[in-house]
Simulated scan of single mutants.
Amino acid sequence: MNTANLLNQIAFIKEIDKVKYIQRKTKLFNSDRNENDAEHSWHLALMAIVLAEHSDEPVDILKVVKMVLIHDIVEIDAGDTFIYDSQKNHSNTDEERLAANRIFGLLPKQQADELIAIWEEFEAGETKEAKFAKAMDRLEPLLQNTSNNGGTWKEFDVSYKKVYEKKSVIKEGSSTLWNYAEGLINESVEKGILKNE
């Protein structure tokens, strides 16, 4: 048994427990309770498994699941940036890269290197797996906001244009899911739960 590896892995497992305390702006379905990052990542993993048949290209589902489970771990250090934040860009930052290196760096080198590479692939959003994983990441909050009478859209005065722009990433991974999502966005305007300016 490699005791050093085990102790490093346990240290990582303890560290990532902090993900459970990171509150997101979106709320659970039909609820006024904010979702945390761990709940979000778990939900995306199950969505990816259930919705994989709708990916535009066949994907390595285990890789997608790994991506969605680890994609927000960096928020332990970097914090959660609201997707509609007008002050801070929601794209990969130096702060997140430092976080990835520190947190995944707790693991034995081979595992650390693998998870950092998977995290970077997700952030780049260029492979079919990353595109599908990002589609899950954008679809879940859309479903939440439509179930919550506009949710964060109303709370933070987010416009149709901004929602459409951010959610259009879904079409990179799945035209089927994008058609569904686009319908939900348009219905939300018709229902008056998303302002069209």
Results as ranks from 00 to 15, higher is better:
residue 121 E to G: 04
residue 144 Q to T: 06
residue 63 K to P: 00
residue 4 A to H: 09
residue 125 G to C: 14
residue 20 K to T: 13
residue 50 V to Q: 08
residue 117 A to L: 01
residue 148 N to I: 01
residue 13 I to R: 14
residue 11 A to R: 12
residue 177 L to K: 02
residue 36 N to M: 09
residue 195 K to Q: 13
residue 84 Y to L: 06
residue 30 N to P: 00
residue 139 L to I: 02
residue 143 L to S: 02
residue 113 D to N: 15
residue 69 L to S: 10
residue 52 A to Y: 04
residue 52 A to S: 15
residue 25 K to L: 02
residue 172 E to M: 09
residue 13 I to Q: 14
residue 154 K to V: 05
residue 67 M to V: 11
residue 103 I to Y: 15
residue 62 L to Y: 05
residue 172 E to F: 01
residue 40 H to F: 03
residue 192 G to I: 05
residue 88 K to I: 15
residue 156 F to T: 01
residue 82 F to Y: 08
residue 137 D to H: 13
residue 139 L to E: 04
residue 35 E to N: 09
residue 88 K to N: 13
residue 189 V to D: 02
residue 189 V to W: 00
residue 87 Q to W: 00
residue 22 I to H: 05
residue 135 A to K: 01
residue 116 I to E: 11
residue 164 Y to M: 15
residue 105 G to N: 08
residue 81 T to S: 14
residue 103 I to D: 08
residue 56 D to F: 04
residue 89 N to C: 14
residue 168 S to L: 07
residue 197 E to V: 04
residue 89 N to Q: 09
residue 58 P to Y: 10
residue 103 I to K: 06
residue 160 Y to T: 09
residue 188 S to H: 00
residue 127 T to G: 06
residue 166 K to F: 03
residue 122 F to V: 07
residue 150 G to F: 14
residue 173 G to A: 03
residue 58 P to T: 10
residue 174 S to N: 05
residue 90 H to T: 13
residue 33 R to K: 15
residue 71 H to R: 14
residue 67 M to Q: 13
residue 56 D to N: 15
residue 176 T to L: 12
residue 74 V to L: 08
residue 86 S to A: 12
residue 106 L to W: 05
residue 49 I to M: 11
residue 39 E to H: 15
residue 116 I to A: 08
residue 63 K to H: 06
residue 171 K to L: 06
residue 168 S to H: 08
residue 155 E to N: 09
residue 59 V to M: 00
residue 90 H to M: 10
residue 104 F to Q: 03
residue 11 A to F: 14
residue 56 D to Y: 08
residue 6 L to F: 13
residue 7 L to H: 06
residue 175 S to F: 03
residue 157 D to I: 02
residue 163 V to A: 04
residue 152 T to M: 11
residue 103 I to H: 14
residue 107 L to N: 02
residue 106 L to D: 04
residue 48 A to Q: 02
residue 107 L to G: 01
residue 197 E to P: 12
residue 195 K to M: 07
residue 98 L to V: 12
residue 65 V to H: 01
residue 181 A to R: 05
residue 151 G to Y: 07
residue 121 E to N: 11
residue 91 S to K: 14
residue 6 L to C: 03
residue 56 D to P: 03
residue 48 A to E: 00
residue 181 A to D: 10
residue 143 L to C: 03
residue 159 S to Y: 09
residue 58 P to C: 10
residue 102 R to E: 11
residue 42 W to F: 05
residue 17 D to E: 15
residue 32 D to P: 08
residue 23 Q to S: 14
residue 197 E to F: 01
residue 37 D to K: 08
residue 107 L to M: 03
residue 33 R to A: 08
residue 124 A to M: 11
residue 47 M to G: 02
residue 93 T to K: 10
residue 189 V to Q: 01
residue 88 K to V: 15
residue 129 E to L: 02
residue 100 A to P: 02
residue 187 E to M: 14
residue 73 I to K: 12
residue 141 P to R: 06
residue 124 A to D: 12
residue 182 E to P: 07
residue 149 N to D: 13
residue 18 K to N: 13
residue 110 Q to S: 07
residue 136 M to S: 09
residue 183 G to P: 03
residue 94 D to T: 11
residue 150 G to I: 15
residue 77 D to S: 13
residue 195 K to S: 13
residue 56 D to K: 05
residue 112 A to V: 08
residue 82 F to R: 00
residue 100 A to R: 08
residue 28 L to D: 01
residue 163 V to K: 00
residue 128 K to F: 02
residue 120 E to I: 04
residue 32 D to G: 07
residue 126 E to R: 09
